[in-house]
């Protein structure tokens, strides 16, 4: 691993965490990769950013990153949202690494709430920031109970919850953090990504790592892992299709943010993935 001499921030180790803590996290990640979808407890450290602001993802990234890595950080799909900026600056400061906004150029993509529109490639690592790693948490608040349910693969409560949604609303009313079954075994919370992004988890060529700092849990999807969004035969899983086109790049395929642009409440839509959007605009300009 990199040594202290490469430390851009005096008084701190490369990438902030000491090497012992990094090893501890990597051991946890290895276990997580070996048991896809299983939540591995780890001795999460206090980070200089608040809990809930990506400390799990930051610790995962810090434990993996080398001086040769190129880091992309997104929040809500965008590179320039305030917290993405803050986390990217943190790593530039404590690891002196190169960063990018281009999905294709990144070796590590740390994300909150989105998976990039641009398909990921083998060798890339996605790091997800996770607020509540336990998919059963809002059905069963006790950790002792949920651990038992996972051990027994007893996911009936989750299916009952989805069934009740259908009875009440006519649809499964979970729009983000939509639960998935991993490798035919563990039910996993994919972090609060919109369910639009769920199909991208399935058989992804990139390694997907999940870090929950406050809850001190790690989990992972190794490349090419089967990931199935929970559903019923008569109510199959479906994604929410965008109802408009991006006002900037015209995409009808990407996940869109809604903007209210005047007092009359006029709505416009733009891509949540800023890199994807800009690349499309550039390509169009080049073609013109």
């Amino acid at each position: 691993m990199a040594n202290m001499s490469e430390t851009p921030q005096p008084g701190y180790n490369f990438a902030y965490l000491d090497e012992g803590s990094k090893r501890m996290i990597r051991r946890g990640l290895l276990k997580a990769v070996a048991i896809p979808g299983f939540q591995v407890p780890f001795g999460g450290r206090e980070m200089p950013l608040p809990y809930g602001w990506g400390t799990g993802g930051i610790q995962v990234t810090a434990s993996l990153i080398t001086p040769e890595d190129v880091l992309k950080v997104i929040d809500q799909g965008a590179d320039d949202t305030t917290n993405a900026v803050s986390i990217r600056q943190f790593f530039e400061r404590v690891a002196g690494i190169a960063s990018t906004t281009r999905t294709r150029e990144a070796t590590i993509v740390q994300t909150r709430h989105r998976i990039p529109e641009t398909p990921l490639e083998p060798g890339q690592i996605m790091v997800f920031q996770v607020p509540i790693p336990e998919p059963l948490r809002f059905i069963e608040p006790s950790e002792t109970e949920t651990a038992t349910l996972h051990a027994l693969s007893d996911y009936g409560v989750m299916h009952v919850k989805l069934y009740e949604d259908i009875v009440r609303h006519g649809h499964i009313a979970t729009c983000y953090a939509y639960p998935v079954e991993v490798n035919g075994r563990y039910v996993m919370d994919p972090s609060p990504i919109p369910r639009f992004d769920n199909p991208r988890l399935h058989m992804s060529p990139a390694l997907m790592l999940f870090g929950a700092g406050r809850e001190r849990r790690l989990y992972a999807l190794p490349p090419h892992t089967e990931v199935v969004s929970l559903d019923f035969e008569d109510y199959p899983f479906e994604i929410q299709r965008p109802e408009a086109a991006c006002a900037i790049c015209g995409s009808t395929e990407s996940y869109l943010d809604e903007l209210i642009v005047d007092d009359a409440g006029t709505r416009r839509h733009v891509c949540s993935d800023t890199d994807y959007c800009q690349a499309r605009v550039k390509a169009r300009e080049a073609a013109a």
Partner: peptide, 25 residues
């Protein structure tokens, strides 16, 4: 306080998906 304050972070994406669902319902 960390988890409370994270509510100040952007949640456009999740809110957008809820908005879409509520309109649909």
């Amino acid at each position: 306080s960390g988890f409370l304050s994270h509510l100040k972070l952007p949640h456009y994406v999740d809110f957008q998906s809820e908005l879409g669902l509520v309109r649909k319902l």
